[in-house]
């Protein structure tokens, strides 16, 4: 591998950009394809599938090896609430990097979230430092439109692989009206998981956390719910 290519790959990884190293194992020739780059030719389909699965492997020709690098999935929770206290350690066990954001300093304390990063700032400020991306899930859990709406919108626009929002159907109906009034397309709004989580009849905060995490894992492994329903 050329050293420049290794540096380019490490830069993509450090910047949380997905990339695939394509190696011809016979000639030793290599190139790097970043997600979103137009990949033409016979490998286009294989590359797209590899970006989705995140798994490295040999292409069908048995000669071309695809080393797939996708960023570790993150879970951003808006609201340092009871559900996030249960969801943070569960998410970490399942391999996600959790992050909690809540401008209410009484909630957003490190004591309530052992070992989980907590940012006690408004989401628009906090997300400047931690930009959302396609390998991030976002769960809005405060019930408060002043806190939840902005990050929901940002997550949909950043193509986060999962966007969930807590609240009853009625609460969500009002939220949809606000987001539409703010100019968001119906298609984007439909991607919101609400009422939040897989329907397992969850009641306690910990049970709701399980439901939310189940839905996040399904979105990561099987694609968004809207796509799964259509399949």
């Amino acid at each position: 591998m050329k050293f420049e290519l290794l540096q380019q790959l490490n830069r993509a990884r450090a910047g949380r950009r997905a990339a695939i190293l394509v190696t011809d194992t016979q000639s030793g020739e290599q190139r790097l394809i970043e997600a979103g780059e137009a990949a033409a030719g016979p490998l286009a389909e294989a590359l797209a599938a590899r970006f989705r699965s995140g798994r490295s492997g040999m292409a069908e020709d048995g000669v071309t090896f695809l080393t797939v690098h996708v960023p570790p999935p993150r879970l951003v929770m808006i609201g340092a609430v009871h559900i996030s206290q249960a969801l943070s350690p569960m998410a970490r066990l399942a391999g996600f990097d959790p992050l909690v954001i809540d401008p209410r300093t009484a909630f957003a304390t490190p004591e309530r979230f052992a070992g989980v990063p907590v940012i006690a700032e408004w989401p628009d400020e906090a997300l400047k430092e931690q930009p959302l991306d396609a390998y991030t899930a976002l769960a809005a859990l405060t019930h408060d439109p002043k806190i939840d709406d902005m990050p929901i919108r940002a997550a949909l626009e950043a193509n986060c692989f999962y966007v969930g929002a807590l609240g009853s159907r009625k609460t969500h109906g009002k939220r949809v009206e606000r987001l539409m009034a703010a100019g968001l397309s119906q298609e984007l709004i439909k991607a919101i998981d609400a009422p939040i989580g897989t329907d397992i009849g969850a009641q306690s905060p910990a049970e709701i956390a399980v439901a939310v995490l189940a839905e996040i894992i399904a979105a990561l492994r099987k694609g968004p719910a809207s796509v799964r329903a259509a399949a």
């Binding site: 591998m1 050293f3 030793g28 090896f65």
Partner: peptide, 8 residues
Amino acid sequence: KVYVEKVA
């Protein structure tokens, strides 16, 4: 199967 290459 293991592919071994030089970083140059």
